[in-house]
Amino acid sequence: MAETTVESQGPTPGQEAAARTNIGLLQRLDWVRGYLLMTPTILLMCGLLIAPLASLFLRSFWTQHGFEIDKTFTLHNYWELIAPSDEVTWWSGIPFPLKNPAYAIVIVKSLLISLGATVAVLLIAYPMAYFLAFRVVRHKMLWLIIITIPFWTSYLLRVFAWKIILGYNGVINSGLIWLGVIDKPLEFLLYNPLSVIITLAHAWVAYAILPIYVSLEKIDRSLLEAATDLGDRPWERFLHVTLPLSLPGVIASTLMVFIPTVGDYVTPTLVGGPTGVMVGNTIQTLFGQRNDGPLGAALSAVVMLIVTLLVCLFLWAVGYRKMQKREAAQ
């Protein structure tokens, strides 16, 4: 109220300076008030996220002896994971000259399975996002809701559905036998890395559509008209204009699918079988049956580190910073 009167009367230089310091003080108070409002949430996340992760990380430097924990600092657990050996173990044509190759193999396998699922998801999701952005005119909200619903319904059940579909006594096998296409059930459908990839792709595809859709929706339609006017055919126009401009969405989708699926537990457990085991299962076994929490903690830390490094590498490789700057400049 006071400021309005000052303005209407025309401020003297002294008053103006006083008002400016007042505003400066208010601004400082402003962020203090903002952080006060934020404090409960920050404290909650410290207690539920930072503290558990820190204690997990700390544990990775300890040693388990039976039911006792030896709290002397050691890098032994990390050494267990990477200790070299003269004997080379081969997995899918990749040599692992390690003492305990199982850990490295399961990490590589998880990364490959996630990569496969991510690629499959992008290939399926992109045309759908394109359809939503460029073809759907009426009932857009209805379409968006339809593709978002499965995203929120039970993950467990969506995965279980694939077990029913691909199983030995499953929908595909019984259906094909019923139709007379095959005589006896196909055994290669379930319990292998491919069934994990199919199930993951189906379970996560809904997550990938929205980021791509948003970046397609943002594209200035006059750019597309310009490309057509300048003689681009539809396919060229897509490659030269639409695809590059939608890359931020594609990158977001890639990360949203790749990062969480590396550590997935439910899918490999239900449809993976012995060959489809992923690193989440190994971590669970280490904390459970094997009763070696510290080693499990070290494995968790290594997996998070590798995923973080891969994500940074990926963002660097696609020139994400340049892309952000360009978007900010627009």
């Binding site: 539920l48 996220l49 997990l56 990360l255 969480p260 550590g263 669970q284 904390f287 903690a297 998070m304």
Partner: peptide, 13 residues
């Protein structure tokens, strides 16, 4: 983005 299995074991610890 952190796998829930890792959040799970961290909270368990």
């Amino acid at each position: 983005v952190i796998p829930s299995i890792i959040l799970g074991v961290a909270l368990l610890v």
